[in-house]
Simulated assay, not measured.
Amino acid sequence: MPELPEVEVVRRGLAPHVIGRTIAEVEVLEPRAARRHAGGPADLVDQLRGVRVAALVRRGKFLWWRLEDAGGEDLGVALMTHLGMSGQLRVRGADAQSDAASSDAVAASSGPRPDPLRHRRITLRLDDGTLVDFIDQRIFGGLWTSPLVTASDGQAAGMGGDDALLPADAAHIGRDLLDPAIDLEAVAARIRARSASVKSLLLNQEIASGIGNIYADEGLWEARVRYDTPGSRVSRARTLALLEATAAVMRRALEVGGTSFDALYVNVDGRSGYFARSLSAYGREGEPCPRCGTAIRRVSFMNRSSHFCPACQRKRS
């Protein structure tokens, strides 16, 4: 599943193509990709046709398009986008591919370009002829509209936004670790107040959003914290170090276009990210720990895999 760095790479790559543009037409090829829209696919088409994209904002793994009418009035709703397990947003058009490939947001990515039309579910045609395709092999993601509400702390709602308005469907998730408005002390306190495993708490989107299995394992390895340690057993200093380490890992991933293991995650120009080459624990079962040389182990945990170094991340009594 694309995590925070991957969704942010998509936001940065997509923004120059869509902000300030009007959605001229919408084509829904797979109704399941619009299943979260209350009025169904036909209503989604009607709501989006002729509206202008004022901003592209992200919090955690949620991406939303701020919408306004032709006169510049905010419509009070946002177009929500969630990539699910395999979703992509791809840009097509006479100049779209070359523009995306040359932008700073995607210049560091590489790899093969998968078929851009396979598994196409929804296409937005903009007034300049640019096409934005929502591609989703497994159809766990989708597009839908959600009314805007005010963030509880009154600060800018997410990356790319300049006010406190965010979609109601994203209001329940916490700020992410790359958000300038996040209160790390408060996040650390919430983790330390729980007896659940620290990894499960990192994955809890209501505490801090955007962290998935890859970056949880990498952050835990960086901070030398074992995945199954109860949150209440981690000191304040170590919890803050864990959050800062996880944020640092995600920043490094963002610099190289995110993490790609297959064609299910690519940037808006169809390129894969480089960060899989830099992972220290995730996906490295049996390989030597980059820090101490002990073989990385993989165990089943919470219906997923956890990768860790048994020497660097010892179980604490």
Rank of each mutant, 00 (worst) to 15 (best):
A164N: 01
I296T: 15
G111R: 02
A156M: 10
V149G: 05
V106T: 09
I19E: 14
V28Q: 01
S232K: 11
A156S: 13
E218V: 04
A42N: 06
T259M: 00
R35I: 08
A253W: 01
V299W: 14
A263K: 07
C309S: 03
L56E: 05
A247I: 12
L4A: 13
R11Q: 05
E68M: 06
R49T: 07
R66I: 02
H307I: 04
M80L: 03
P230A: 06
G40Q: 04
D183Y: 06
A94Q: 08
I122P: 05
E68S: 09
I296L: 15
F134D: 11
S86Q: 09
Y265R: 12
R252E: 04
E30N: 11
V10E: 03
L264N: 10
T130Y: 05
R284W: 06
A208V: 10
D115R: 11
P167E: 08
V26I: 02
Q97H: 08
L165T: 14
A237E: 15
A223G: 01
A33L: 01
V9R: 09
V249M: 07
P167N: 05
A196D: 12
G286S: 02
D162F: 09
S102G: 10
R92C: 04
R291N: 06
S235I: 02
I122S: 07
G283L: 00
A189T: 14
C312P: 04
D217E: 01
V51Y: 07
S146E: 07
C289F: 00
V132Y: 12
K199S: 05
A38P: 14
R49Y: 02
D74L: 03
G270W: 00
L63Q: 01
I207C: 06
D104V: 15
A108T: 12
V7G: 11
G39V: 00
P310L: 03
C292D: 11
R192Q: 07
I23L: 07
T259Y: 02
D46W: 08
L166P: 00
F261S: 04
A281H: 04
L243K: 09
I19T: 15
V53W: 04
G84N: 12
R66P: 01
R226F: 01
Q88E: 11
I182Q: 05
A55R: 13
R52P: 04
R291H: 12
Y282H: 05
S197F: 15
D104A: 14
S103N: 09
A247F: 13
I211R: 08
A164E: 00
D69W: 00
A156W: 13
A189Y: 02
I214R: 07
L89K: 03
V45P: 10
